[in-house]
Design a protein around this nucleic acid. Structure first.
Lengths: 240, 240
DNA sequence: ACCTGAACACCGTTCAAGT
DNA sequence: ACCTGAACACCGTTCAAGT
């Protein structure tokens, strides 16, 4: 409830210089790090990992680097631009797998690579999943998916439709996984039991019927299931 | 760039009382509206429609109601609670269609009802699509989808898996639609041409091959396509 | 070229005091 | 029961001045 205390608590991420160093003016004498976009993005990622995207402030990022918040504006385009940069950094970390002779395996492998990259920074994943990114660098996974679809025999038009549906499914599934957080994914039987009875008591028969399974959630197998479902839908649309 | 001016501009949403009314203390004499959660949620929806979720401030919402921001805290649980309330309000507006004898048609109809509700407030949709909602009221669409799946012959477990994949696809697709905004959805040939050449020049062969279709985007037919794809995947999993 | 002091116009929220 | 003044601890961002 008291936002001041919450933020005070969260925002302390190991600063590069000691907080007791005296305030200066102009360029620091010598040893101080050169600020750069990459360094700022990495610092931001640390903050996001610690307090989530909504906890990010220019001041918090700057303090990780032992610098004043206003200095960041020499390297990034404001807070929104910075968060875009973080998202693209994460997107760039996806390792596109080599192609095999099975398009099904290839699609699965790309999907897994995407998830793997998101999982390394669960709290930052939301940035990739919800932002409208425009960089060319972020297109590598799209290129990879499209290439596989073309190669499987789909024409330029159908490939795009399938690509978009598949990506939507991946995003929707991962968004749920990272938003749910560790709480929902937990296998704590007590927690599951509480959710189960809440669902049974909702007075909705179909929900009550499936309550046991609704209360349980295994992120990894849910993801695999969604990808398999997508792949079988694509297979059904194969020409010839 | 100058945030002050931007906000000044956007935030002026027709206030209920004239802005020149003198400041008061304690309860206003008589004519002033009774504040209520519903009224606050509706006012917030107006603000979101005007300036998007990130533009919402307690002060802006209060000013729509001609009231001080701090008064809102008597009725909602802070800003986050308020935005949750808005999301649930929107979720509650979904009109679940009557069931027919075709589970395919039923799934499509529920999906369409979901989209229709989101489209009425495109900028607010993001709240429904990205927030972790916990209310029982929001479960109606889930109940409807599950009932259809059960009725189609799926057991309690498989129904939940299919439900989650389908919902993920809907959320991913709608998120893209509302995030893209009117710009991307436009059929302006110049805009499409610019995007097309940007994609061709990216040096990625599969993207270049599909560039024409990647540059074009029709939200409604993309949605229909994704739903159809999901339904055909579900059909392939039908028992017996 | 790049960093900061001073400053501005905002925020969300608490709490005691008012009616 | 519900509203507000005063106040607090934050924000993002600009710009001129410093080195």
């Amino acid at each position: 409830m008291d936002k001041r205390k919450e933020i005070r608590h969260d925002v302390r991420v190991t600063p590069v210089t000691t907080p007791s160093s005296p305030p200066r003016r102009g360029r620091p004498p010598k040893g101080s790090r050169q600020l750069s976009k990459e360094a700022i993005v990495e610092a931001t990622l640390k903050v996001v990992d610690a307090v989530g995207p909504e906890g990010v402030s220019m001041r918090a990022v700057a303090s990780v680097l032992g610098v004043d918040a206003k200095s960041l504006y020499n390297h990034v385009q404001g807070k929104e631009g910075l968060l875009d940069d973080v998202a693209e950094h994460l997107l760039g970390a996806i390792v596109i797998p080599a192609r095999t002779d099975s398009w099904e395996d290839d699609l699965r492998a790309i999907a897994d690579a995407f998830r793997a990259a998101m999982i390394t920074h669960p709290r930052a994943a939301e940035l990739v999943l919800t932002r409208q990114l425009t960089s060319v660098a972020g297109l590598a996974p799209v290129e990879a998916l499209l290439a596989v679809l073309h190669n499987a025999g789909f024409d330029a038009h159908e490939s795009v439709n399938l690509l978009r549906s598949l990506v939507a499914t991946l995003i929707g599934t991962l968004l749920r996984e990272v938003n749910a957080g560790p709480t929902f994914g937990s296998s704590d039987p007590d927690e599951i039991q509480r959710r189960r009875s809440a669902l049974t008591d909702a007075g909705m028969p179909a929900i009550a019927f499936s309550a046991e399974h609704l209360a349980h959630f295994d992120a990894e197998s849910e993801f695999a299931y969604a990808v398999d479902l997508g792949i079988s839908a694509i297979r059904a649309r194969l020409p010839e």
